[in-house]
């Protein structure tokens, strides 16, 4: 059953803008989509390698800043009399650079922080995100610090033969986010289905066994961290060009918390988990908003989170998979992640 979730999602969500005219709900879906991409990227680390990164928002924020600064331009002086001046460029270039730079950052951070595991890893990643936030806050010459980067242009796509298309409307941005989400999904699906994915899962299940079988732990984890960071960076870029203003608040710890909630409640280590979790916890605040007082909304949000984990400690998707597996013993008990399935979605 779970193998059907992703294609079903795609069909349903491709059709949404055709009947949904409410811009507020469209906006909620776009933001939810962006955070779901983050959740998918976090799932690669948390779900498949078992490494809990609580600094994931750092890559999201770096992606947002790289993309915004590429589009807006900057003029910054560095030590030793160096000076970098950049005239504004195209947002698409920003998107590409965001992916590249966050990928490299993810690689470096991976090299550093995979020296430790478990709780230590958790804290290193929090530390990294805090340091990045404080740099964004204090390096005013580059980031304008708390004064915020404003008037960030919308994403522009060059269409062959048709000139540039600037994505201004909700519907255009919606399909952009959906497109990037589908690509991200496919990247994760391909990756976890490969030999490499088996190495990741091996490390998660039993690190010493995997090592004895010749898995290069640091290399495997670092590659996962690189891809994961690059995807979060892409999401950050989408965010910057959609919201059109960023300040050091893009590094809010609560964004990381949202991503972790989406992954763990949805079901870590399953392809569909972050999609289901992302949708539920992305749209839950929207559903609660008209019903109750602001403080009560947060209390109910926390309560639902606890309730889901009590009933389904492994998350929603694995719980559903188990349910169907029990009914049809013939099918897989584990979430299917075969190459055939990944192919079926493309």
């Amino acid at each position: 059953m779970t193998r059907l979730i992703a294609p079903l999602f795609l069909v349903v969500f491709a059709l949404v803008p055709l009947w949904l005219n409410d811009p507020y709900l469209m906006n909620a879906l776009i933001i939810t989509g962006i955070f779901t991409i983050c959740a998918m990227s976090l799932n690669l680390l948390l779900g498949y390698t078992g490494q809990l990164s609580l600094g994931h928002v750092a890559f999201f924020g770096i992606g947002a800043y790289v993309s915004a600064l590429t589009a807006l331009g900057f003029d910054v002086s560095l030590p030793f009399g160096l000076r970098i001046t950049h005239e504004g460029g195209s947002p698409l270039l920003g998107f590409v650079l965001a992916i590249l730079i966050t990928g490299v950052t993810g690689y470096l951070i991976g090299r550093l922080s995979f020296r430790v595991r478990g709780a230590y890893f958790v804290i290193v990643t929090i530390s990294f995100a805090e340091v990045v936030r404080l740099v964004a806050l204090n390096w005013v010459e580059l980031t304008q610090g708390p004064l915020a980067l404003t008037s960030i242009p919308n994403m522009t796509l060059p269409l062959p033969g048709l000139g540039d298309l600037t994505l201004r409307t909700k519907m255009q941005n919606y399909y952009l986010v959906l497109g990037v989400a589908v690509l991200s999904y496919l990247v994760v699906a391909r990756l976890v289905a490969s030999r490499f994915g088996r190495a990741m899962r091996g490390l998660k299940e039993n690190e010493s066994l995997a090592l004895s079988l010749g898995v290069n732990a640091t290399r495997t984890l670092t590659i996962a961290a690189t891809v994961s960071a690059a995807m979060a960076g892409a999401a950050g870029s989408l965010y910057a060009h959609y919201i059109r203003i960023i300040d050091p608040d893009v590094f809010l710890f609560s964004y990381t918390v949202t991503m972790v909630i989406m992954v763990v409640a949805g079901g870590k280590g399953s392809l569909a988990g972050p999609l289901v979790g992302g949708l539920i916890f992305g749209l839950l605040p929207v559903a609660l908003r008209p019903v109750m007082a602001p403080e009560a909304q947060w209390i109910v949000y926390g309560g639902i989170l606890i309730a889901i984990l009590f009933v389904m400690p492994n998350g929603i998707v694995p719980a559903l998979a188990n349910l169907t597996a029990r009914r049809r013993p013939a099918s897989l008990t584990k979430t299917p992640e075969t190459p055939a399935e990944a192919g079926a979605q493309s």
Partner: peptide, 21 residues
């Protein structure tokens, strides 16, 4: 009255909600 949760993303979303809904 809408709560923007002291968060810029929400401040934008709330503006949209107030205007369109």
């Amino acid at each position: 009255v809408e709560d923007n949760k002291s968060n810029p993303t929400e401040a934008a979303a709330v503006t949209e909600k107030l205007i369109t809904s």
